[in-house]
Amino acid sequence: MSEIAFGSDKSELISFRIGEQEFCVDIMAVREIRGWTPATPVPHSPTYVRGVINLRGAVLPVIDLAARLGLGVAEATARHVIIVVQIGRRQMGLLVDAVCDILSTADHAVQKTPDVASDSTTQFVRGLIAMEGRMISLIDLACVLDEREAEAA
């Protein structure tokens, strides 16, 4: 619990869906949400990097969050959305199935991720939030980049 430190004791989060699971990120990190546009693939990249897109003149990598979380590669369609997030000095797009809503939660409502067998999903989850019968996993954005890049960011 103590490791989840927010500026205030209340946080605004944006929740989104990948397959049947719901995730969320801190709204402070989100710059914008935009529809799917085809990305230009970048050679020698991990499979979860869909490529790069043009965001008003900046070249932005798009991470297929489903692939990153080990939930299978997304079949991107026009209904998919890209959540543009800022991590350190970098921006990147997260490809997700759909945005659900904006939630406001008290920090103490974030529960520690239960210590289940470490898999590629839980290593990116900072905690769990229970809300209206749904379970929402809070994504640790810094880990979405690989370790080496996370250090550099």
């Binding site: 970048v42 050679p43 990097v49 790069v52 900046a58 070249v59 990598p61 921006q91």
Partner: peptide, 14 residues
Amino acid sequence: IKSLEANYRPTEGV
């Protein structure tokens, strides 16, 4: 010219 490294990383051949 737009940097690929600004938001991503250097890539061989690019």
